[in-house]
Write a protein that binds this DNA or RNA. Structure first.
Lengths: 345, 345
DNA sequence: GTTATCCTTGTAAACGTTTACTTAACCTTT
DNA sequence: AAAGGTTAAGTAAACGTTTACAAGGATAAC
């Protein structure tokens, strides 16, 4: 057998104690550096750990001190270009605090979320960072009932006891729409995200606010419900085109839908930005590689991930007791798809 | 305090035992379903677990049975577009077998790799899936010495005792180069990946093999050393252009470098594919969103991730004892950047 | 009706730590 | 020099499971 467990007898704190001729309590104390301990013994113990190549067993430790030093990260799908930066932010921050992060992809399915929550609870993670899907209440309640610290990513839930980090979606959508209006557009189509998600709903209202403040009538026929996917962006535009309803711009609730939209426009021989200006949301990396370069609203995704863990750790340690809502401010990235920086008409 | 541990007294197997009026051994047996047990007690116990909302403590279990049901996944960077699909494949496969996956980003730094290996060992993961960076020998040896089952992703290391999964890089590079040759190209520049990586080296030799088999002289001046990054692709082409050396095609060792290369060509007013044909490697999602659509060599990245875990689990369970090398076969995806499907000159 | 066999359940030890409590040695202080 | 105080080290219990072993009851065999 290639990996014969017998060959690799785990060296435990007992072995170290024996070799250094002290008690296991002393070894533990020296290794954790909490209590005072004589330098002489410390040296002997440290030597023994080197000689035996002792590596503490974190699972025993976790059992005893009821702290696994691991956190769960629940997201819909790492293959969605929005998430890698978020995950990286989470992981980098976790590393600093010495937490392991357990990654879970749910595809936005409530049932999967529930399974993973229970799974993570079995593993006794110290906290969970959660980018939730649609049907919020139930799983949030579950989390509450388990008493695990939670921070919500990119979502907001009414009356939730947990902390959250997000971007000001409403403001972002407002900025995007305003940008289009200022470039002379008046018939601005809107592709929403999942309206059940706070991010989706907020972006929709930002869009409407902007129209309102420029005295442009909100037109239902220009509003489409998307699902944050390429396909839904494409489909929305196709429907719009088929309806033969006039429009001169599109604001899509995320970049992938914006790209789907542009692809569809191109397919029908409509030029971006000459015929129709397009703005997205998120500023994923692809936005600067896609042609035309995508004008979009930047969310500081990496920082959001980092901040989420900062918050989570504060809750875990008890340093912070009451929930906190961190809202990042979005930034308009003007690029080609909205006509770039040149003057309008 | 928001998360008062006292309020959420963990219910243990003892509580269940008491409630069901049986011994803890019986509870354990019923829950694990190994030994025979009377239906009557089973029912009582199951009822008690429901009533108390008992969730087994996996860390205690892990300590006892020396099996944490978690695996480590070490990659350079989840933000590199190559990895999300791989990670997803790994995670989906792990889910099936009920393993938690702990994600680690090393940025390809040997030192970070080492730290994470030790970290994961402390957590007593049951196995590690490892996409290694440059300086292989040392960390591989470390893994060997720890006796943890390992499977190597997308890399091959001589004389390694671990299993590995990869794509036939040499064949892929051969196919890419051949494709360009068959489209009439003769002066094909090559941007390598990190030559210290097996994938880098193998692609280089595939390129050379193809030239050879078409009797085209290998020309050092057309070969550039890249680092699998956008910037290195861009820089390579810029150098090539500055050298004023003639070329009519580029084969880049991955898609991001190919895109960097095309961006640079565009910057200098050179059209792709009209003036220069470009082929990449990997077939990341971006390859079909980028303009021009990127001709590339597809690696079945998701499947590779899945297969790696399949292998890893087999090693963990002892089902498979000797290392196995799984090599996927690449596929040529003909798109616009090489001139598409139209006949060549 | 006694003995043997089987099967279900219980008792208790173990996994590798941390830590409350005890002990003993060494300082102070008077 | 005795009493008290401080400190470093050791002993043993505990964290929540699994499981070897023991025990007892029922069934089968004679």
């Amino acid at each position: 057998m290639a990996y014969d467990k017998e060959n690799f007898r785990n060296v435990t704190i007992k072995d170290v104690a024996k070799r250094a001729e002290v008690s296991i309590a002393t070894v533990s104390r020296i290794l954790n550096g909490k209590d005072r301990v004589s330098p002489l013994l410390a040296e002997r113990v440290l030597l023994a750990t080197k000689e035996l190549q002792y590596q503490p067993n974190d699972v025993a430790r976790a059992l005893k001190i009821k702290e696994s030093r691991s956190i769960g990260l629940i997201i819909p799908d790492i293959e969605n270009p929005f998430f890698p930066a978020l995950v990286r932010g989470v992981q980098d921050a976790a590393k600093i605090h010495n937490y392991a992060v357990i990654l879970c992809n749910t595809d936005g399915k409530t049932e999967e979320e529930k399974k993973y929550i229970q799974f993570l609870y079995s593993k006794r993670v110290d906290g969970i960072a959660f980018t939730e899907s649609v049907d919020n209440k139930k799983n949030i309640a579950l989390l509450d009932s388990l008493g695990i610290p939670v921070v919500l990513l990119d979502r907001r839930v009414e009356g939730m006891k947990a902390s959250g980090v997000s971007t000001d979606n409403r403001l972002g959508a407002f900025m995007a729409t305003k940008h289009l209006i200022e470039r002379g557009k008046r018939r601005i189509a809107f592709i929403s995200g999942l309206p059940k998600l706070s991010s989706g709903a907020e972006r929709a209202s930002g869009y409407q606010d902007a129209l309102l403040s420029y005295n442009i009538q909100y037109d239902k026929k220009l509003a489409f419900i998307g699902a944050f996917t390429y396909e839904s962006g494409y489909a929305a535009v196709e429907n719009l085109l088929l309806s033969r309803y006039q429009f001169d711009a599109i604001f899509a609730s995320n970049d992938i839908m914006a790209i789907g939209a542009i692809e569809c426009l191109n397919q029908y021989g409509i030029r971006v930005p000459e015929d129709v200006a397009v703005v997205g949301f998120d500023d994923i990396r692809l936005a600067t590689w896609y042609k035309p370069l995508l004008t979009t609203i930047r969310q500081p995704v990496y920082e959001m991930g980092q901040y989420a863990i900062k918050l989570l750790v504060e809750h875990i340690t008890g340093e912070r007791s009451s929930p906190h809502e961190k809202i990042f401010v979005p930034e308009l990235m003007i690029r080609q798809s909205s006509g770039g920086l040149e003057e309008s008409k």
